[in-house]
Design a protein around this nucleic acid. Structure first.
Lengths: 195, 195, 195, 195
DNA sequence: TATGAATGAGTCTTCATTCAT
DNA sequence: AATGAATGAAGACTCATTCAT
């Protein structure tokens, strides 16, 4: 527990994350990581054999860090609308945070090699879907949300969100865009969308 | 016009396009293109100095090939709903066409280097936006569409479309997803969406 | 026929052969060959992808260069004893030529990797065997040689020859050794070995 | 004597021997030995500074283990022919034992570097020679062996033996070969070789 | 004694790019 | 226009070796 090697690994991941955020996945070399982490060639290879391993480790950490943000609140009988407004607010901010880190890298990483694409992303998507469905059904039950096609709304939310995030790294997206998308989603869900 | 060099260039672009579709942008080398095009090193360099030039040329061709599909029909007084259903049908098919070519490469190309992101994508986005706004306003005018926030609906359509296309290259997306998204968009726009 | 590339290849093989003779197979690096041949890194890789390929090519050349030295003379009805004495004389000289080139390298090369050992050496051995058997049987027929076990004598000749060549590269072998071995072989074969 | 360090050294040598037998000398790295011996890098270096040291140590052990197998029997007035047949039987078995360990490694080790070839092999050769000469002269004295050139016969025996052992690691040698060679040697030595 | 993290040198390998023909 | 040999730089990867603990 907590050996020296683990510290170094964490340090490598932190430095590498910055690089991935800046340059995407494919343009980061082991040499880059060495220099960023202040490690020698051999020193880095002691811990990771490729940028792919580093990236996969980072992704793993991120995914494990993500928890179900809805369940607890639903358990406490919170208002579905409140929960929704909160998460949409967060989504909006993330959509606007263009440099927001890893989307480019993730895209390159998972598109690189069939071996990688297997699971991680899909698992993440499914997890997110089950969370959202729970919320949406909860809201519909409580008559807080309109009686929509839960799957459709989820797909619309998640893919428009991802679309904006990705295109935001490629071109200057109008600041109003996230705003507008979020509003429209509210309109779809909330009966009296006096947002 | 129509010199031999242009023929060779076209041939190079065709072969390179296949490579870009397979491997994305960053992983295609000039060497790859040489081999694919059956040209010698020197021969290729006579026409293009880098994969970036080839790709930019390809993108250019694609964008120039895209014409305003709505204007004409609107001019002829066609039904807004009909126009909408047609284009959404096309979008749906494109969303399902996973290998559908260049999205990965485009993403890598435009995310690569600030110099490149200039505006090609943005121009494309704006062009698309003005086309859609024209259609949407036309439909609202004719009472065929609900009285929605035109900009918001456009953003929702285009970014959810792009989101699906991109994620479709990263993971196995449920075949129903494009279906559902398109239906939901219809619901938003069409008063009696008995789709 | 006779392109520039072939000239370069020959040049590479010549320079590499010197290196292999000096250092054996495993200690010669592609870098060594580059420098010896006066070629750049990339230049060498244009022609050969590994020292193994170079070595295999050299071995191939050597084996193809080797011709049946007995057949013709036998066809001319030459004296078996004369043919024998000539070839044994050559063997003796080769046994004494310690630096004599590639034995170390050959040993390392063929012992390296099961894939390589398959054939080349065995084929060479079998070719040599059939040549020798022809000579020995010819000599026995003509009553010039004693009525020996042809296979046994061949094995004794070839393996003692190889044993001396190999050990000669490892330690200082008595100059008389080849002499003695050759004489003994003559005694075995020739009825009145007043050699 | 008999310290813990000696135990570790013996353990290292045993594990390394396996590696040398498998891969020859040049391809075994200190890292390999670490892993095989279950030692850390630093731990191994405490005992040996290079694979050369380990190998030299192993060779030393082997040579010291070799004792004069003839003297004693000769002293007891045993039959020369019996002694001969026994040792030739052993040689035959060793020739057939292809994986029989260290010949490749020995060859690479002693051919590697002039510094190493000093004399270990030569000493071994001379020791073996004096043993054999003693036996051969003993047999000739007792009229059990033909009156051969003792040095010549020794060289023939030892080098054909070594030749077979070495080539046996490079190519598939006919199982009959050792048989035939040994028989022929008996024929040379024994008057009535009704073997 | 022993550990294992870290260093740095050496080699491999692949390309973008040039140039004589 | 086109060829393809050649260059040289960049990055990958592996070890021998050291050293703080």
């Amino acid at each position: 527990m907590g050996k020296k090697g683990d510290l170094t690994k964490r340090h490598i991941k932190e430095q590498a994350m910055t690089l991935f955020a800046e340059k995407g996945f494919k343009d980061v070399t082991m040499k880059d990581v060495c220099e960023a982490a202040g490690l020698s060639r051999g020193g880095l290879y002691l811990h990771y054999g490729s940028t792919g391993q580093i990236f996969a480790d980072i992704i793993d950490d991120l995914m494990n860090a993500q928890k179900d943000e809805f369940s607890e609140k639903i358990g406490q009988g919170a208002s579905a609308k409140e929960i929704l407004l909160q998460v949409l607010e967060r989504y909006k901010n993330e959509m606007m945070d263009t440099k927001g880190a890893l989307s480019v890298a993730i895209y390159e990483f998972f598109s690189a090699d069939d071996a990688k694409r297997d699971n991680a992303l899909l698992r993440q998507y499914l997890k997110s879907r089950s969370m959202w469905k729970q919320l949406l059904e909860y809201g519909i039950d409580r008559k807080e949300f309109n009686d929509v096609d839960v799957d459709a709304v989820f797909d619309l939310i998640v893919f428009s969100y991802q679309g904006v995030r990705m295109y935001g790294t490629l071109m200057a997206i109008d600041e109003q865009t996230p705003e507008r998308i979020i509003s429209l989603i509210k309109t779809i869900l909330l009966t009296n969308a006096e947002v």
